[in-house]
């Protein structure tokens, strides 16, 4: 079942108009945000083909209309326990520096505009999922953790630490 909401219209807009906009999603009860300019698509979960010898958070690859996209389980990336996928599970397709990745999250919330003033630096503690958080945003009464997309896609230190 491939059921998707396409944000492809954003491809045509100037990158500048995407600044300050974030796509928010949920992992358990925590709300996270990721910069909209890196998001190309949002789809529902679909069958994943496993690829051997990859970290556990890389579930494998999928066929997205002929394109092969790797899939990363964000829960596992954040060292949280795995949760079975259900019909609310979404895959956020992000593209950054030539790397495309599908991020599996519990559910997707909405697109918000968050001005820079409302985002503060995260505390110094850098363990587990905190290392991927680049800022903490206040939205009304809520707090959303703004993620560093680049770190999520490229950071390998977590494996090294776990091998010690």
């Amino acid at each position: 079942m491939v059921d998707y909401v396409s944000f492809q219209g954003y491809e045509e807009e100037e990158e500048d108009t995407l600044r300050g906009k974030y796509l928010t999603f949920f992992i358990d009860n925590d709300s996270y945000g990721i910069e909209l300019r890196y998001v190309t698509e949002i789809i529902g979960i679909q069958p994943v083909t496993e690829v051997p010898e990859l970290p556990d958070y890389i579930r494998g690859i999928i066929n997205l209309r002929g394109r092969i996209i790797p899939i990363m389980d964000v829960r596992l990336r954040f060292r949280k326990p795995f949760r079975e996928y259900d019909d609310r599970t979404c895959v956020i397709i992000v593209e950054m520096s030539g790397i495309t990745m599908g991020l599996v999250v519990d559910s997707v919330a909405e697109v918000l505009s968050i001005p820079d003033e409302d985002i503060v630096e995260p505390p110094e503690i850098q363990k587990n999922h905190n290392r991927y958080v680049q800022g903490i945003a206040r939205v009304g009464d809520d707090v959303k953790l703004i993620l560093d997309c680049n770190k999520i896609l490229t950071d390998d230190e977590v494996e090294q630490l776990s091998q010690l």
Binding site: V51, P52, E53, L54, I58, I61, I68, I69, P70, G98, I99, T100, M101, L153
Partner: peptide, 12 residues
Amino acid sequence: KALPRYIQNKRV
């Protein structure tokens, strides 16, 4: 089809 870049870098 080539494997996605991310996976190629992992050299499976």
